[in-house]
Design a protein around this nucleic acid. Structure first.
Length: 587
RNA sequence: GCCUUUGUAGCUCAAUGGAUAGAGCAGAGCUCUUCUAAGGCUUUGAUGUAGGUUCGAUUCCUACCAAAGGCACCA
């Protein structure tokens, strides 16, 4: 019997009772199932049907309770009325204890088979060659990586894709600037960050000149065309070198972040195919308008967008058609294809999706767009064109330095500290992104930076490290293991009194972990896991502060407390993994 | 002007139509001869406005106010 099995038998029983009373289609539901282990598993049946049966809710609740006496509910100790019309059910403590002991030995706890045998593609991060990898990309990466891991935990095959931009006007601007500053071009043996910093600066300079000088604008437009046609060797060489440097740098960042893409589709690969598909559907899906090829979205409650401009060049829209078609051509049997972009593209993507659907219903209906929020600075809007962005790297480094400062008095080697600092820095950043719903913007305050205290990544890591330290100490002490049946009758353990600190909340929260993963997966919303883990860490920290876990004078209780600690370590480690956060060995 | 999204505590965020709306930060006060104090405990404080649907609304609907994004050849 599982927790959901217990819930189902209660709902079945209540529905049967309601039906006998005359409710045509009773649909009792359980409220606050998170309280299932504390006697708070409740149903709203009495409230929902009181009117229909012309009774007051309290009266109906009482009648249901009486009728429940004829049902033998497994693992349910007692039912009682609580509040106006609610009925509470209390789960047998032995069942809870058994679950906790089981979880403490199950390293894979949290995995569910809800998406078994599905194949899901996730596209995220999508950086631009010649531009800096800024904290906006960190957002896309954090959310995309977390969603990928959650889907993987749900039993599906995940294919991680990255769609880097490597062609277009922005690159022509950078190439023009480099061509005019060749003397400053760093050599190949310069540090990678310095080489890409140079590219970023060139892009900013090229953009400024493009706007200021009509001559430069004409020149850059011409370079753009030549790069597209690959017709000028000198320009191609600059382009190839910059492209290589950018991607080398991105690769190093993915490694540090813990993301490994299964494949890359470059913008330059999908421009022509996208154009061809659009042209093949002119008259059916697309139409000509003012010399351009457009999709009339108005027929579907959307707006018109240009897919091929009047020069016949594919716009971002056409490339997106090429990209999403290529995914389904390259990867067989995709069930769902998730595309993660900034939410500024929400409206635009609806149009692209509709067009895709008309071209190929399978691709269109299986493509799912998620718009993530933007990272805003309190200092004003960031823009890579103006060059006032915070790079992903500088943020990570800043966090690492702060962590090292905090660890000054820890007894660790410098090498150990460095590893911990990276884990903590990335944990802090990822947490701050994943603590809120994916669509919302994040206000980044450079003064306050990212939190290390309270509601934060390091708070979760710290709790996990504490638990692991206790487990290690227990192993060294060679603690005897008691079965739950031995603990229960002799010590009177697992009852309200012995949960003085957390009142059993810690245990019931842990049992719910797979349910949280399921919800996060269904909604593509990692913040449900973040919130859950934070609450759980708080409960564990209270438990830790109020109880000596390993107490040689109380072997049976110690055994159980160690099981609780082990279960917590597993849930926290696995939960943090789902957020893309590592648990450092020490802190 | 039209479309989309968002308005919850001083600040940053939570809350499958259900019970007393949860955290963290900031403020006040405690707490390390005991498994890591990046911790724990106590405490002040909130659903933009006006209606509607419902036994019940932060959640659904309408209007208004406010903010963000989008609305033809950028990505």
């Amino acid at each position: 019997m599982t927790i959901s099995g217990i819930s189902e038998q209660i709902i079945r029983a209540v529905n049967t009772i309601l039906k006998d009373m005359g409710v045509a289609e009773p649909r009792a539901t359980l409220e606050h199932p998170e309280n299932i282990l504390h006697g708070d598993l409740s149903t709203n049946a009495a409230l929902a049907y009181a009117k229909e049966l012309k009774m007051n809710p309290r009266e109906l609740a009482g009648k249901i309770l009486t009728a429940l006496g004829d049902y033998k509910l497994e693992h349910v100790d007692k039912n009682e009325s609580a509040g106006p019309g609610f009925i509470n059910f209390q789960i047998n403590p032995e069942f809870i204890g058994t679950e906790i002991v089981r979880i403490s030995d199950d390293e894979k706890f949290g995995r569910t088979p809800v998406l078994k045998s599905k194949k899901i593609v996730v596209e995220y991060t999508d950086p631009n060659a010649f531009k800096v990898f800024h904290i906006g990309h960190l957002m896309s990466n954090s959310i995309g990586e977390s969603i990928s891991r959650i889907i993987d935990y749900s039993g599906a095959t995940v294919v991680r894709l990255c769609y880097p931009s490597d062609i277009g006007l922005h690159i022509a601007k950078a190439v023009w600037a480099i061509k005019n500053n060749l003397k400053e071009l760093p050599s190949e043996d310069t540090a990678i960050t310095l080489r890409t910093d140079f590219l970023g600066k060139m892009y900013v300079y090229g953009t400024a000149q493009y706007e200021e000088s009509p001559e430069v604008k004409a020149e850059i437009d011409s370079i753009n065309k030549k790069l597209f046609e690959k017709s000028d060797k000198e320009l191609n060489d600059i382009y190839e070198k910059g492209r290589r440097w950018s991607f080398e740098h991105f690769e190093a960042l993915y490694k540090k972040l813990g993301t490994k893409f299964d494949g890359y589709i470059y913008e330059s690969e999908v421009a022509e195919p996208g154009k061809k598909i659009v042209l093949a559907h002119v008259g059916k899906v697309f139409q000509e308008s003012d010399g351009a090829i457009v999709f009339k979205g108005e027929d579907y409650g959307l707006h018109t967008r240009v897919f091929l401009n009047s020069q016949g060049l594919p716009t971002y829209e056409a490339k997106e058609i090429g990209l999403n078609t290529k995914k389904f051509a390259d990867i067989p049997d995709i069930d769902t294809s998730i595309v993660l972009t900034g939410n500024e593209q929400n409206e635009y993507f609806k149009v692209v999706r509709k067009a895709l659907e008309l071209i190929d219903p399978k691709i269109g209906t299986r493509t799912h767009h998620i718009g993530h929020g933007m990272l805003r600075s309190t200092a004003g809007k960031m823009s890579s064109r103006k060059g006032n962005v915070i790079t992903g790297e500088s943020l990570i480094e800043e966090m690492e330095e702060m962590t090292l400062e905090k660890m000054a008095d820890r007894e660790m080697t410098d090498a150990e500290k460095k590893i911990v600092a990276t884990d903590v820095a990335i944990g802090a950043i990822r947490y701050s992104i994943l603590r809120q719903a994916p669509g919302g913007n994040i206000i980044y305050d450079p003064e306050k930076s990212v939190s290390f205290e309270g509601d934060s990544g390091p708070y979760l890591q710290y709790a996990a490290v504490r638990a692991l330290t206790v487990i290690q100490k227990a192993n060294e002490a060679g603690l005897k293991k008691f079965s739950i049946k031995d603990i229960l009758p002799e010590s009177g353990f697992i009852n309200q009194d012995s949960f003085a600190v957390t009142a059993g909340t810690l245990e019931r929260m842990m049992v719910r972990f797979p349910e949280m993963v399921e919800r996060a997966c269904k909604e593509y919303a990692p913040h449900h896991i973040t919130g859950y883990l934070t609450e759980l860490a708080g409960l564990f920290n209270s438990f830790y502060a109020g109880n000596k876990i390993i107490d040689p004078t109380k072997p049976a209780e110690s055994s159980y407390r160690l099981s609780v600690t082990k279960a917590f370590a597993t849930v926290m480690t696995n939960g943090l993994y789902l957020l893309g956060i590592n648990v450092p060995p020490k802190m």
